[in-house]
Design a protein around this nucleic acid. Sequence first.
DNA 1: GAGTGGTCTAGACCACGCA
DNA 2: GCGTGGTCTAGACCACTCT
Lengths: 245, 245
Amino acid sequence: MELQERHSDRPGFRPLYQQVRDLLVSRISTGAWRPAEALPSEQALAVELGVSQGTVRKAIDSLVAENLIERRQGKGTYVAQHTRESAQFRFFKLTHDGGERALPSCRQSTIIRRPASAEECAKLDLRRRSDVYQIARTRYARNKPVLRESIVVPAALFPGLDTRQPLPNTLYTFYQSEFGVSVNGARERLKAVAADKEAARELLAAPGAPLLSVERVALDVAGRPIELRRTAFLTENTHYGIELS
Amino acid sequence: MELQERHSDRPGFRPLYQQVRDLLVSRISTGAWRPAEALPSEQALAVELGVSQGTVRKAIDSLVAENLIERRQGKGTYVAQHTRESAQFRFFKLTHDGGERALPSCRQSTIIRRPASAEECAKLDLRRRSDVYQIARTRYARNKPVLRESIVVPAALFPGLDTRQPLPNTLYTFYQSEFGVSVNGARERLKAVAADKEAARELLAAPGAPLLSVERVALDVAGRPIELRRTAFLTENTHYGIELS
DNA sequence: GAGTGGTCTAGACCACGCA
DNA sequence: GCGTGGTCTAGACCACTCT
């Protein structure tokens, strides 16, 4: 290990526990430790890296706070996986007005491969003329259509995605288990828009009906953009529920 | 101090640092330490409470993570105040599509005192027939109306609020400095709705135009509901920007 | 019982702000 | 130079899980 000594006046100096944190992130994001896998024990890491257990512990604390890893007392420390119940709604905020969480299902979807637009290249950090896959689908809850979405991902990260139909409902667990891509954050822009003809047809609504439009850029463990998703929600009996803190 | 000893099998046992955390929260929420005031040093608190400095530190860490207090290296630890730049946009997520944060100003507002509705009593944890103040106002950015909002607060918490006109733009700093009420979290429900007649008139939009409707319950330091706010946004040139993590 | 994470302590030294 | 928070260490003991 080449952890940087204290006392260094070099401008790029970071505290030891942050250096350890960065090292753990890189081991996770490069796949050296895979989701659901156990990390070495705190003591083992401390010995390997030549720091105290307390320093390793502080690094792990910060990664737990970022939902990147999980601790299980008495067992060990594990790379977080998205397949668990608790993570299902982390990036899906639609709720029935009664309070029950909604997880709409998908009846069919289309997927095509095409070159990325200039906007997509910018938002996904792609080189010009890279290919993307685009998925379009309508999803239903309680037997009624509730949202229409368009999903764009870089083809390079998801080889053969178009041969995997039917795609599962919850794509992020699928991204992780099948392609090693872990979504760990998102930026969203919400607007109210009027339904265009296609959306109105798919959602069985009047043209011009108000729809909640959400444009999401999903980020991976290292903060890189992974997916661009535009969703239009019918919010007659549902809402988008968030907490600010 | 009556911190609970370790080894206790009592079901309500909490780790020492959490007990210290709870104690600090209660001192803040009861006003024993007021916003912008310095807490005693970590060492002084450790001596007072009969625990080690590390334990006090861990308690303070968690409160810093909750935005309840701030550390300033070399100076001390301070109760967070909302008047600072950085906190201005914590609960105000409207952004111009170009990326610049929007902070619409208010030209006039109305305020009335009336008994709370049943729904308001439920959402604000009030006794039946408690009084509330209701504020209604339209706010403008770049000389155009962008939102219409209705704000309901318990009269008991804000004595004489109706004599304080004109109310400032950013109410939360006003709540804190004038009434000792600190907003420290919020639950929001977002929907797309069609503009009704009043909203259309106030926002210079067509009746039926799509509006982003946000219903917010604002919470204080101890998690108690403080304010009920319904806002309708025109999102033609702006959006509601959030980060999920 | 062995091994893991969780809590708590005591103490050293560094970096910063201020008088 | 002093007092504050920030980093780092070393070690003790507790609580949990599995064998």
